[in-house]
């Protein structure tokens, strides 16, 4: 598999269900809900959706934060050459091997320091050809699941060049998964309306 884009960061720590990417440059941080991929063992590409970005402070930033005269170069330095990496949490949604998509958890998590890439439009299209992964998002505890699902569906819709059919199918799948939770469903549907 080739990738048209340069890495957004590297794996800081990982588990079977999620991993954390360390990024240096805020401008290149994956946006909320967007698809990323990382190579694991045996030619597997693990796919996931970015769901939380943490910009941690460090003692140096604390010291200069209250200064009214921070030079532009200093502010730019702290944005682009961060000493403390920006942490992006990624929910694992499935994996690809030999061109086939599997929408369940991979056999092994990616190793630390592995390069993490944004998914290309064709990869997003291939991965979202099935909608089983929406269940993973909706029923993962302790994440902003509804917001993530909506953001992720909007992202896929755009990457699929405004594929209305996909959007309708994703809405139907959400309705099936949330058949007993009308309020949650309503909130999600209102967020993915084009």
């Amino acid at each position: 598999m080739t990738h048209d884009l340069s890495p957004v960061g590297r794996v800081l720590r990982s588990s079977t269900t999620e991993f954390v990417v360390g990024c240096q440059d805020l401008a290149r941080v994956p946006t909320f809900g967007s698809f990323v991929k990382v190579k694991a063992h045996d030619g597997i590409w693990v796919y996931g959706a970015a769901y939380n970005v943490l910009i941690d402070d460090d003692p140096f930033v604390r010291q200069i934060i209250g200064n009214p005269h921070i030079p532009r170069e200093v502010a730019q330095d702290q944005k682009e050459n961060r000493q403390t990496p920006i942490e992006v949490k990624v929910l694992v949604l499935g994996y690809a091997r030999d061109g086939l998509i599997y929408q369940y958890l991979p056999p092994q998590p990616p190793a630390t320091l592995s390069d993490v890439y944004p998914c290309t439009a064709s990869e997003v299209t291939a991965f979202t050809g099935q909608l089983g992964y929406l269940r993973t998002i909706l029923f993962t505890p302790q994440i902003p699941a509804d917001e993530l699902l909506a953001a992720n569906v909007r992202e896929a819709y755009l990457r699929r060049s405004g594929d209305r059919e996909y959007l309708v199918e994703a809405g139907r799948e959400a309705a099936r998964l949330l058949k007993d939770e009308y309020d949650r469903l309503k909130a999600i549907l209102s967020r993915i309306r084009p």
């Binding site: 030079p71 532009r72 170069e73 730019q76 330095d77 944005k79 682009e80």
Partner: peptide, 12 residues
């Protein structure tokens, strides 16, 4: 290397 006046991030 910090380029004062450039507004650009230094090279570290």
């Amino acid at each position: 290397v910090y380029r004062h006046g450039s507004g650009a991030a230094p090279t570290a």
